[in-house]
Nucleic acid binder design. Structure first.
Lengths: 342, 342
DNA sequence: TATCTCAACCAAAACGTTTTGGAGATCATT
DNA sequence: AATGATCTCCAAAACGTTTTGGTTGAGATA
């Protein structure tokens, strides 16, 4: 089963490969009659263009790249499923494929992937998520002049195309929602400190407390790693404090699930005795027990925006919308309802 | 920033490009002295081989492909994160990258992706998951002679390289565990009927009941779609039966989470009043409330095996281990403990 | 001295496209 | 009858590698 090439079509129709190529690419300088004949025999022979040859000539790959950052092997973060699903969907709509790899953040392995993809032209553009505080990746990609789009801005004020969710405003909203519902001693479980998302969450949280004149107790600020296990452990730690908090704001839904587990073990009723909020997806939190109050970050929409921006950068369009803001939505469920016992 | 090519190195050292190429590829017919000089200037100039050119010549891409099957857009299945993470990890270890796309099962779109990847040589091999009952993909890939490895066997008895988890035995184990713990009216929430995994789960379930001489009530067999929403809805449906089941065996953890949610709403205590079991991951189920009894399917290990088999097929090794069996492990938690009230 | 062997190198073809810079007809315009 | 214009088509170069089938010269062997 030798693959058919443009040459086979040309030979069969007694045409030059130039004409066949141009016909397939839709150039106007080939008559309709020949174009039709070419298209017909092309599909008849089951012709599919050889990507490698194409890439070599056109200096384009029709591939977007994304490197998952995982600290441990064998990690599973529901965030990534939705993120990848959105990326892939929208990329497919543009006729692009997605190439992914995986590496621990800030390792040589990670650096090598970016270097290889860039230098050997394996991707036309790159998507960055989980931006870090001083992120070498944005500097690197800018130096290489490889198109990229980030999810979230970087801290050092470097400007680049990106899509941001309005984390600051979201945290204000969460804190004021908790205050309104009678919770007074609000604590915060964050993520690793070198993530921008942690920083903006934390700032929003602190700012939220200031707005309503609540005191800030440094002991109420603890850092995990987004995982449910860290949520579990840190909740147990927070509960040992005196006075213990009566509300736990978590940086992710996963963290919140761990928190709920810890409370369940201690027979503390979420909502009634202590409030818990998540941050991120609406999907899984709907069926947690009790259902979790959370900020619904529309990851799927965000990724589609990201791909759109990236494509416009790649295609060197004018007037690129540089920075798109997306607003999460507060979903109030049982874990922040004092009145209704679950 | 014009990328440096093999030619630049050759020019700089007054050598032919042949010699440079062969030196870099480690052929023995180049003297050590020249090889060293070549390697040095290569790294000095920051040379990275152009993949497209390489592929074109060698008819290899160093890329593995995987097509996610999603019925709706915007889906999020924790299974895929672990699956992808394993694939990517192991692929990276072999110096391969992963290319992914997404399509609804059995659509033209899906077919086109497989056709394009195969015919235009965009991947060296393909990983198949969620095998369907009469899966056109295995026939197609066999016809195309494109290396592939499946997760789970197909029903029609076609033999191909694969990694299976021992689903049948697992279901026997679950059913007998439930019986031993005093549950009598055991029901089953399955998945879509055209999935092989649904079929083997169901067979195992029925066989399990037979082994312990429990009657099989057809009303106790319902089909969902692996999602928590369907678990939620179908649990409500099962609870309306008279007599209602006192155990719900779910085909996936997600389904089980939905079931737990439904029970929680009706103030039915999982474990005490009714048993619930999941199937799949150990990760998320650890922090469900109450913690879920489930079969731990080692997805991560499975994917690594899959990549290993796939690579040996691609490299046309002799004595390929055709079919690898992996045994899930029963993790007993609160949802099947009658004695301890949660 | 003539022949053989071996190490070290190389020119040119090939992989399957796209692109450049025309060529050859046909037809209308002067 | 010559000049343009327009419409189709094409030969050849290029993209950056790998691979094939050598050549060259030095030393060993006959």
């Amino acid at each position: 089963m030798k693959p058919v090439s443009i040459r086979d079509i040309a030979r069969q129709l007694n045409l030059s490969i130039t004409t066949v190529s141009r016909a397939l690419d839709g150039y106007p300088d080939v008559s309709n009659r020949t174009r039709l004949r070419i298209l017909e025999t092309a599909s008849e022979l089951g012709y599919v263009p050889n990507q490698a040859a194409r890439q070599l000539r056109r200096h384009k790959t029709d591939v977007l790249g994304f490197v998952l950052a995982s600290a441990q092997p064998k990690f599973a973060d529901p965030f990534y499923t939705e993120f990848l699903s959105g990326l892939t969907d929208e990329a497919t709509a543009y006729g692009m494929d997605l190439r992914i790899s995986i590496a621990s953040p800030d390792t040589d392995a990670e650096k090598n992937i970016y270097k290889r993809w860039s230098r050997s032209h394996e991707v036309d553009g790159i998507v960055l998520s989980h931006i870090r505080v001083h992120d070498w990746r944005v500097r690197f990609l800018q130096d290489e002049a490889l198109p990229f789009v980030g999810f979230d801005k970087s801290e050092d004020g470097i400007d680049y195309p990106r899509c941001e969710s309005n984390t600051h405003a979201s945290m204000l909203q969460i804190v004021s929602h908790l205050a309104q519902n009678g919770y007074r001693r609000i604590s915060f479980i964050g993520g690793p400190e070198n993530y921008v998302s942690h920083q903006t969450n934390l700032e929003g949280f602190i700012h939220g407390l200031e707005q309503i004149n609540f005191p800030l107790d440094p002991a109420y600020l603890v850092n995990g790693d987004f995982s449910s296990s860290s949520g579990y452990a840190l909740t147990n730690k927070l509960l040992e404090l005196d006075p213990a908090p009566d509300a736990i704001v978590c940086i992710s839904d996963e963290t919140a699930f761990g928190a709920l587990h810890a409370l369940h073990e201690k027979k503390i009723i979420p909502g009634k005795d202590i409030a818990v909020t998540g941050f991120g997806g609406a999907q899984e939190s709907k069926h947690s027990i009790p259902p979790l109050t959370t900020m619904d970050v529309p990851i799927y929409d965000i990724t589609r925006q990201i791909v759109r921006i990236l494509m416009s950068v790649i295609q060197k369009e004018e007037n690129i919308e540089h920075c798109i803001q997306v607003n999460p939505q507060l979903i109030i469920r049982e874990t922040t309802m004092k009145e209704i016992s679950p």
